[in-house]
Amino acid sequence: MQMKRWLGSLVAVSLVATLAVGCGGNKDKDKGTAKGDFSVGLVTDTGGLNDESFNQSANMGVQKAKNDLKVDVKAQESKKDEDYVPNLTRFAKDKRNLIWGIGFKFDKAIPEVAEKFKDSKFAIVDSNLGGKIPSNVVAVTFKDEEGSFLAGVAAGLTTKSNQVGFIGGMSSPTIKKFEAGFTAGVKQANPKATVKVVYAESFSDATKGRSLAKSLYDGGADVVYHAAGGVGKGLFDEVKSRQAGKYWAIGVDMDQSRLAPEHTLTSMVKRVDVATFEITKQAKEGTLKLGTEVNFGLKDDGVGLSKNSKISPEVMKQVEEFKQKIIKGEITVPSK
């Protein structure tokens, strides 16, 4: 009897859903179609639009394009990895001219959708698709290792204990780039310093980030850099509970100094916004080269340290010198 009651309810639920389709169905067709002469679609990964990280930065770039170049812009968040393909497809069906997939997680979805919609242009951030870039796709990558190298220089020259720390999100090549560049920077600037590397195996567990930071600081480190998304929030919570001017944190992706204004040495800023704006602009003007990888590094201001920083002037001078050496090619920064 109990079961029957339940089943009855469900049949009813399904019926209503179907009925409502009949009534509310076709009304909204074409409503999503793009207006204006050039239109852009942006699909975030599961981090969402305002993740204070690369999704947000990417969106800032296309929003700037909306204001400066008068292009039509629409953004869509993905809730699950499985949503990437349908979300990209929606924009393609809307005949949007340029469709962005933000993050390396799109490395299978972009080629799959690009294959079906040959007339649309696609762009992916943070992946070169293993070198196999379709003819209607542009791959945008960043030399995260170069920016991290400068963060390493700043850390190596600021540390008093000659111990610095690195907190990674998940042990994957995307994050190893940050670790490799940072470690190289520390060693070059201060051969006596050691780098302790830890991974949270998460991008969201701030409690874990705080615990790892605690262990690193307790173990003697006085500057800690992170490339760990939400886990990194815990680093700032921990450093804030310690003596200012003695313990430092270095942020990543965007200027993170608001999380701990007195304790943030600097942030390794990744200008995804510069990249999304530039590429959108080129696409609109018809000068975009497709089927290639566009790599943003120190030279293009694609990566670098935040303007807002507590790095001392003497250290800053050396950071600048290293920066010039990298740009001139005198130093090659490892990425693995």
């Binding site: 079961m3 339940w6 089943l7 469900l10 399904s14 909204d28 869509q76 809730k79 349908p86 929606r90």
Partner: peptide
């Protein structure tokens, strides 16, 4: 649980659930 742990109920509630979730993406879009 919504399907009262019966196979038929599970299929029906999956339809409701899946429909709402996929429709939710479109709701955000449009």
């Amino acid at each position: 649980l919504l399907g009262a742990n019966t196979p038929m109920g599970v299929v029906l509630s999956s339809m409701l659930f899946g429909g709402l979730f996929n429709g939710g993406n479109n709701m955000q879009y449009v």
